[in-house]
Nucleic acid binder design. Structure first.
Lengths: 341, 341
DNA sequence: AGCATTTATCGAATCGTTTCGCAGAGCGTT
DNA sequence: AACGCTCTGCGAAACGATTCGATAAATGCT
């Protein structure tokens, strides 16, 4: 590959002049500029971004660590972040932590080692908070996405408690007094909040929750499936189930299928964060849908504000977006309707 | 941040010795090593990967350009690539081209600018082949994934023609003589191959295909939906439809829903590359499923072979994996069955 | 004891840029 | 004619590591 030196030699100028032409960092005379441009064309010179990054100690790239790219909702967030990032001239380096804290740690190290200018993280459950704080301490801005915590930085996610409460109250309005929760992994912040919404709804309605109605654990579909199967087969089977995540929902539906139970005939059902194309399939599932793309763009905007130094809020700003609720047949409704997102 | 110079000074050795300790590139005396290690601990030194990359002109990273991360099948491939990459000590830089050739071009530039050691590309339709060849020409190995072409390098994807032919023959065996194809974008290599399978099946069965039964175009769900609606409403409505991609399948199912048609009652249906959790929902769709994760791992293995110089096949090696066919109710089968993948 | 060989460490060049002080040229002003 | 500007372009020092030939010390061998 041709270097800046080759170009300079060919154009009979110094390397600094070439650099100024390439980056428009200083005015360069017309005749000289033309010679340089021509030399660049002839040599096929391309800027070496590595050398450039070394010298400038900036990389114009940001890192995105996401807990699981394979989940549609995260894939959508990725698209949002990416769109804003490229629009602002930043390259996105993506790493997947596959819901494993160890992989998250590794990804963070790899990305910071590569000197990303900033980071967006959707933490896994049991994520290492001090670690993220250490990165902040090194002066690298970090935005936490989706799974908000107590960490002292910018965060963006959805309202979880309220919508979950509404969802459960809706089931209660349909007459259900025995609603179970497939709650996923409580060490994931969003899950804990949704769990709270479930409790609040019952408190509001003055209904006592049976302990065995609350299913928690790893959050994996298979584990939920096993627990739900036991619950469905038990003496006081719930008349309704609400799931706190797509994975939990899969578990519940699989368990129901195992036992030949159908929704809404045999039990009412609703979930947070459901399935793509829910309208095309039966049962049509009542679902809280996150504005995932919007979460992504917002996260990147917050990060950009930090990077350009505009974000002068000393402690982090937390943004909560409103999810959308689509009432479909699985909760017992006869016609579908949607709340404004 | 502490640099290697700080460490050297503190340990009273030269920077080269520190480097040798860090990288284990030469033997270092025990006492010296201990001093260096201690100095590293005290200063909190971390290798600067940018400077390192500049000097070594290798980055230990590879780029992955994928046509659409938001599609589950690609997300799964990403996971496969990522797994192999990290196992081999490579960092993955991921870029999304969102099915737009211009974005693909941009991503390729960004990644090669960052001096990735190699590339894996799942090309978009209408992808710029000479561009990829130019990258190969610069000595950067490239593996093409999923959408195989005539390009002169390693490629990995699934068998498309045969399984599609089997799928259509299966419909024909169910008695269908009027099967339409929702064919997607023919400039995408996989789509063209599946299209061929559809034709072969009809040729084998001696059935003539009506031109209006072949729906092609952008491949977007909305476009397919419009075309399928027209077809469903027309005089000689097909008795079966086969879709060549998930997006096309969505379009067909949405069109059917628009008109109140159901599968399998009103038309038989099957698709290549269907929906996650197909077993939980009705209609249960007969689907060809790609071994996406396996495609990803294979792609990375091919790339690794090139990177380590083992891959001495001068012209590219093409690997075709076998997809799995799950026969479910939408094609008219009464019980579900699955071919070995 | 003398010489060859191994072992441990150092020094310096190098990777390809950016950046900034500096100098020469040209020009208008007094 | 002397002075002060503005314009252009040059030169050289970084940025933080790796790498390899050279050197010095230690060891082995006869």
């Amino acid at each position: 590959m041709a270097t800046i030196v080759d170009v300079a030699r060919l154009a009979k100028v110094s390397t600094s002049t070439v650099s100024h032409v390439v980056n428009a960092t200083r005015p360069v005379g017309d005749a000289t500029r033309r010679r340089v441009v021509e030399a660049i064309r002839v040599t096929g010179y391309r800027q070496d971004s590595i050398a450039r990054a070394l010298r400038r100690s900036r990389t114009d790239s940001i890192g995105l660590v996401v807990s699981d790219v394979a989940q549609p909702v995260f894939a959508e967030m990725v698209r949002g972040v990416e769109h804003e990032a490229t629009a602002a001239g930043f390259t996105l380096l993506l790493a997947n932590s596959a819901e494993q804290p160890a992989l998250e740690t590794r990804s963070l190290k790899v990305l910071t080692d590569r000197q990303v200018d900033g980071l967006i993280v959707a933490p896994v459950g049991g994520s290492d908070v001090p670690e993220i704080e250490a990165i902040l301490g090194r002066g690298i801005p970090v935005v936490v996405m989706d799974r908000l915590g107590t960490i002292h930085t910018d965060q963006v996610g959805v309202e979880n408690t309220g919508p979950m409460r509404d969802l459960v109250l809706h089931l209660i309005a349909h007459g259900h007094r025995r609603t179970a929760l497939a709650g996923g992994n409580l060490s994931v912040a969003t899950m804990a909040e949704r769990h709270r919404g479930y409790r609040e709804a019952h408190a509001d309605a003055g209904i006592k929750i049976l302990p065995e109605y609350v299913l928690t654990g790893s959050g994996l579909a298979e584990d939920t499936r096993a627990m739900a199967r036991t619950l469905f087969a038990s003496a006081n089977r719930p008349t309704a189930v609400v799931a706190a995540s797509t994975q939990s929902a899969i578990g519940v539906l699989a368990a129901a299928q195992d036992l030949g139970l159908r929704t809404p005939q045999d039990f009412a059902f609703a979930t947070f964060d459901g399935f793509p194309h829910s309208d095309l399939f039966r049962p049509q599932i009542t679902t809280v849908t996150q504005p995932a793309y919007h979460i992504g763009t917002t996260a990147m905007q917050l990060l950009l504000a930090r990077l350009t130094g505009e974000g002068h809020t000393p402690d982090g700003k937390t943004v909560r977006l409103q999810p959308q609720v689509s009432y479909r047949e699985s909760c017992g409704c006869t016609s579908t309707s949607t709340t404004p997102g």
